[in-house]
Design a protein around this nucleic acid. Structure first.
Length: 464
DNA sequence: CCTATGTTCGA
DNA sequence: CGAACATAG
């Protein structure tokens, strides 16, 4: 009865309110915590550079927390199912505990693992990385929701979540530890150019950083309703990478913030949007790979094989489109691995509508550069902007970047991220070119707004 | 109980 | 446009 239990960590790098950790601890048996860097399971999306930086730091912290409990973190690289099966064999473990994940590759890994383990050990998957398990909130007719608002209303009925469980106080150790890699050998941190040097100024990966972030946000959550659209202010939670890596549970976030009245409801809606995205990829695993609407797959995107299209894409990536709000956002992303959500929508809309470039190119760039890159959230949000997804929108959403910049008072934000424009004052900064005060070292607009708008409308009309 | 039709509304 | 629900048949 004292066979070891394995904890299989993935994007759930916490000890508090983590059902797999709790179950293993409660067994009274030796516990073997394992993290596997898996770039090989079929359909796997290899983590981008920014995510890898975050992962390194987060694993460091998790390892330290486990050591405080007298335990360790076993690190392996390769196909998860093979490593876990091997660890089961070499340690005599009879249970592997993990949290449910919904990315297609993780579902593959789970299936493969169950098959590989056979009768030797049991894979026990727990809930808890989402407010409710995807697929469990259904319409009156028993089918999963495709539209956000009814999903929100239905899920809201099941809230608040149960009280968060605290971390175990100790974990029993096995007689013999399985072999482990050394984290530093994985090369998750960039070296050639150490572009991540500044990331540490902006982020504290790990559970302690997540909790600090939550506390800081809790004091201003009531301002979120109005403040979330103002990139120049610091009124958003910045919890996305912490939630993505599971350093804090969404239930913990909900319970900390709810009860402050209707003002925080807007934030809770965003937290539920995260659940919604998982519900979408749970129904449509290919969501990140192609447009959901069949008709929309015929959209006449500009050809990335053409040199000028490639140049436009590159200008967007580097924040040199000549549209200050777009460029500020793209440069913030490059510098910090994160972008304010209002600006994400503007920048994404610009790539898709103004440059008429396939949303999947943008999705991929975000995947590589965001510290919060998440298969579900990223693809659902890109398809939302492109209008190719499950939300039924009758009109083509073409954001006017200059109008948005003014409306949401992005002057300070632009001055912070686009140094060429740092000396330009407020009404002019949104569109210096039009006001005749564009500095020579700031690029001219890559395309005119009117012209781009007409081209996008024509392209979308073709697939109506 | 199941399907058909009307109405409402969308990060 | 089309999802979701209410109501009708």
């Amino acid at each position: 009865m004292s066979k070891p239990k394995i904890i299989w960590f993935r994007r759930d790098l916490r000890l508090s309110d983590q059902a797999a950790v709790a179950a293993a601890a409660a067994s009274g048996c030796p516990v073997i915590p394992v993290y596997i860097l898996d770039d090989e399971t079929p359909k796997h999306r290899i983590m981008g550079g920014a995510s890898r930086w975050w992962l390194h730091r987060s694993l460091e912290e998790l390892e330290a927390c486990l050591q405080d409990l007298g335990s360790r973190l076993i690190l392996r690289e390769g196909p998860a199912s093979e490593h876990l099966a091997e660890i089961v064999k070499s340690t005599g473990a009879d249970e592997v505990h993990g949290l449910h994940h919904y990315e297609p590759w993780w579902r593959n890994a789970e299936r493969m693992l169950e098959k590989t383990l056979g009768d030797e050990a049991r894979l026990v998957l727990h809930d808890g990385n989402y407010l409710l398990p995807p697929g469990t909130v259904t319409t009156g007719s028993g089918t999963p929701y495709k539209i956000y608002t009814p999903f929100w209303k239905a899920l809201r009925q099941h809230m608040p979540p149960g009280e968060s469980a605290s971390a175990p106080e100790a974990l029993d150790t096995p007689d013999r530890w399985p072999g482990s890699d050394v984290l530093d050998d994985w090369g998750l941190l960039p070296t050639k150019p150490d572009w991540a040097a500044d990331l540490g100024d902006h982020w504290q990966p790990g559970s302690a950083g997540a909790e600090d972030n939550l506390e800081e946000f809790a004091d201003k959550a009531a301002e979120y309703d109005e403040g979330r659209n103002l990139p120049s202010e610091e009124l958003v939670s910045r919890l996305s990478p912490h939630l993505h890596f599971g350093e804090i549970s969404p239930a913990t976030v909900w319970n900390r913030l709810a009860g402050q009245g209707s003002k925080v409801e807007t934030y809770l809606k965003e937290l539920v949007w995260r659940d919604y995205a998982q519900n979408v990829i749970d129904q449509f695993p290919q969501y990140g790979g192609e447009s959901y609407r069949e008709k929309m797959r015929a959209l006449p995107w500009r050809d990335m094989g053409d040199a000028d299209v490639k140049a436009d894409f590159k200008a967007w990536c580097k924040g040199k489109t000549g549209y200050p709000i777009v460029d500020a956002g793209m440069r913030e992303l490059w510098a910090t691995g994160w972008m304010h959500n209002r600006v994400r929508m503007i920048a994404a809309s610009f790539l898709i509508k103004h440059l008429l470039i396939d949303w999947r190119e943008g999705e991929q760039w975000f995947w590589d550069t965001l510290v919060d890159a998440d298969y579900a959230s990223n693809s659902v949000n890109w398809q939302w902007v492109s209008g190719t997804g499950v939300d039924s929108n009758m009109f083509v959403r073409i954001m006017a970047p200059l109008t948005q910049s003014e409306k949401f008072d992005a002057g300070d934000y632009i001055r912070q991220w686009v140094p060429e424009l740092a000396d330009i004052d407020d009404p002019y900064i949104h569109d210096p070119e039009d006001h005749g005060c564009k500095p020579a070292d700031y690029p001219a607009k890559i395309i005119g707004h009117k012209e781009a708008r007409a081209r996008a409308l024509a392209a979308y009309a073709e697939v109506k």
